[in-house]
Design a protein around this nucleic acid. Sequence first.
DNA 1: CGGGGATTTGACACATATCAAGAGCGGTGG
DNA 2: CCACCGCTCTTGATATGTGTCAAATCCCCG
Lengths: 266, 266
Amino acid sequence: MQASAMVQVQNSYREFVPARPRPALRDVSQAIAPAPAPRTACRPKDLSLLEGLDTETTRQVEELATARIRLKSGQTLFRTGDRFSSLYWIRSGSFKTVTLLEDGCDQVGGYHMMGEVIGTDGIGSDSHGCQAVALEDSEVCALPFDRVEALGRQNCRFQRNLHRLLSREITRARVVAMLLGTMQADQRLGAFLLDLSQRYQERGYSSCEFVLRMTRSEIGSYLGLKLETVSRSFSRFQREGFLKVERRVIKLLDRASLKRLVDCSQ
Amino acid sequence: MQASAMVQVQNSYREFVPARPRPALRDVSQAIAPAPAPRTACRPKDLSLLEGLDTETTRQVEELATARIRLKSGQTLFRTGDRFSSLYWIRSGSFKTVTLLEDGCDQVGGYHMMGEVIGTDGIGSDSHGCQAVALEDSEVCALPFDRVEALGRQNCRFQRNLHRLLSREITRARVVAMLLGTMQADQRLGAFLLDLSQRYQERGYSSCEFVLRMTRSEIGSYLGLKLETVSRSFSRFQREGFLKVERRVIKLLDRASLKRLVDCSQ
DNA sequence: CGGGGATTTGACACATATCAAGAGCGGTGG
DNA sequence: CCACCGCTCTTGATATGTGTCAAATCCCCG
């Protein structure tokens, strides 16, 4: 069961059909983004599952997460309908999750970066309800879920961490629903950028200068907008002096105004 | 800790300020809805947490859920910011959950009926991220979460059930986000009605004739629409012969057409 | 019987989608 | 090296779906 789970995972990312490679942006992203955070500072944020664990349990979790999976930009980690057996802990890079509806229409349902765990929606139905695609060259660890559960039965702090992780996922999805249900285009994009900014900061990167890993179209899909609308909102933000945008490079200049726009529906 | 948790809960629903009582609809709802399902048929659907448990563990779960809390229509079970200590298992009646944003703008984030468990968003932050309001006279059981976790450590089937429950909550929230992000007004309302229909059926009630527990305004909030738009969509559905609507009483006449409308963006 | 909320419906305004054109950039092949 | 291609992104003109405002009706409730 354990072994077959691992095989399953490997198949899942190996059977990949090399889709259109993603735009490179090598120079820009290398130059600007990941000024790698000091290892120690980054560590505690690494994985919420590790918070507050004794060294022995920490060791066990890390042992559980030994096998690394490398994905090139554009590759799929798991697909809708794939049998669920593991959660995936993103060690480097970033992913989008795409939800597909029966009629073929799809939506980007989430953007996930280093340190986060994806695949949680598969627990309930034993198969993944969405597709995870690498937005850049990335590395993940598979966390076989039976072993995660076993560890949860054994260590109650770890158990709590797992539950918090799942619960936060619920909260996050609710916040997105809130955003889609109540906000206008500008506010949605603003909220998205501020969220990104905060998550980068938490990971030790610059909070006011970062590179978008998604196209306008993907961002639009995530925010329930069309790509043209996203582009126009970016332009408006730049015109108003809230930020500077150059293709995918974002510099936040006036976070306060952006926050005001998002917070109060004005 | 256990005891204080219970006190907390009791305070939470007792300190209630009797808001405007909800419209009664007593006659209609009594007449139409709950043709009470046979107890045996209903039982397995009662609580997904109980699925597949041995009798001893089932007993333990039921023991854990002894204290019943009664709420009148319009009363609040928990509020945003309340300290989290328990999940709540809805034994009868129904609830809406309302998410509040900092700026006071709020949104109905969910509709929950008999058999479902609410309060899961509190696990991650130790305080509730939304407010739960009874949509009719209702009864819930508090499930103190430490004891739920303890039982999870002890019984791996129960643990799995808990994880499935949390995961399904994630999936459900994602589906709502999908709905809000990609569908138009008619489709959203159609999807909402079909979802209700299915959930009533699963509980042994009629799937084609039911009473809405929410106002047009609440439905609109849930679907990211204004109440007028909801009303217009209802009228359109009726005009097209998909259903018959009379205030809050819905009779689905042509489920197939409704489903077609929802599925294919036409 | 009167008052207040829920609901419906119409007219109009506005935000966003749609359609269309063009510019910028990167990659590829001659 | 340049020309070409494909893709992303931007911007404009217009169409459309919903929101907004307003009025009337219905129903429940005191």
